[in-house]
Design a protein around this nucleic acid. Structure first.
Ligand SMILES: [Zn+2]
Length: 272
DNA sequence: GCCCACCTGTCA
DNA sequence: TGACAGGTGGGC
């Protein structure tokens, strides 16, 4: 479900609600979502901050403990002032000393929690292999180009979904970024010119920043920590727009499959 | 690289 | 009944 803008929106929504809180009781209804660590170690420890890397949320506790959360497709982190009844598919609940609770719910149970000492963050494989994100200081056309090099024979869409190439994009924003850069999703990465890659690197941070400003995209499941939907679905240009007219040229948007994922593009603005 | 598994729900 | 869903990791 959530890509970088949605995860960042969850982070921002929870920040004023849970920083300073201390769990007094932790209930686990489904052990399988806890990838590592004993959550009981968090009892009585204060939440100091919430960070994010790519699509991973990192909740910093006292004593250098960190709770890493990945929502995958349908995961949610919800803050609730009033307990009961819990949302469906709640798997872990952190009841706080001052009242209120943080709930991890996930219909498909793909989401994961990792509890590690701060020094153990580098051992979470997906997290430690992440590339730079488009909104990072050091992100540049050169950096992107260098990472694209490793996948010359693959379609650009599939490569941009690889979190070790650029972190944070998922199926929605890759399609939107490729439309903005006027690149066909099936173009082979090795055939992109330097200037095409420069345009890609330029539109990525713009689109992500705009999507964050609009609090992410809600199609079905996504909500932030306050159970609020995003609004960026009102600003999408191609994703889930098959059969509609391109906002730039009026050509009908097509749907196809690239790298096993549904892919939407304008055949006129994004020629082969 | 591609395909599948991981899960449940929804919709044609 | 089957295809599909915003992600990732493991198998070949
Ligand atoms: Zn167009």
């Amino acid at each position: 479900m959530p890509e970088l803008p949605e995860v960042e929106t969850v982070r921002r929504s929870l920040l004023p609600l849970i920083v300073g809180q201390k769990p007094r009781r932790i209930e686990i209804f489904n052990e399988s979502v806890v990838a590592c660590g004993d959550l009981a170690d968090l009892l009585g420890l204060e939440i100091m901050d919430i960070g994010r890397r790519g699509k991973y949320l990192i909740i910093y506790f006292e004593k250098e403990l960190t709770l890493v959360v990945h929502l995958r497709m349908t995961g949610r982190l919800l803050w609730r002032e009033q307990p009961l009844p819990l949302p469906k598919h709640s798997h872990v609940v952190f009841r706080m000393e001052q009242g209120g609770e943080l709930v991890f719910a996930d219909v498909r149970r793909f989401g994961r929690l990792w509890l590690v000492p701060q020094s153990g963050l580098k051992e979470i494989s997906g997290l430690c292999k992440l590339a730079l994100e488009p909104l990072d200081e050091g992100f540049s056309s050169e950096n992107l180009q260098q990472n694209l090099q490793r996948h010359k024979k693959a379609p650009i869409k599939a490569v941009l979904l690889d979190q070790t190439v650029v972190a944070g994009l998922g199926n929605i924003y890759v399609d939107e970024v490729l439309f903005a850069a006027k690149l066909n999703p099936m173009r082979l990465t090795g055939n992109l010119t330097e200037s095409e890659i420069a345009v890609l690197a330029e539109v990525m941070p713009q689109i992500l920043a705009y999507a964050i400003e609009k609090r992410g995209t809600t199609f079905r499941d996504y909500v932030d920590g306050n159970n609020q939907s995003g609004t960026y679905q009102d600003f999408l240009k191609v994703f889930h727009k098959e059969g509609e007219k391109c906002s730039v040229c009026g050509t009908v948007i097509l749907k196809t499959k690239v790298g096993g994922r549904s892919t939407f593009y304008c055949p006129n603005c994004q020629p082969k």
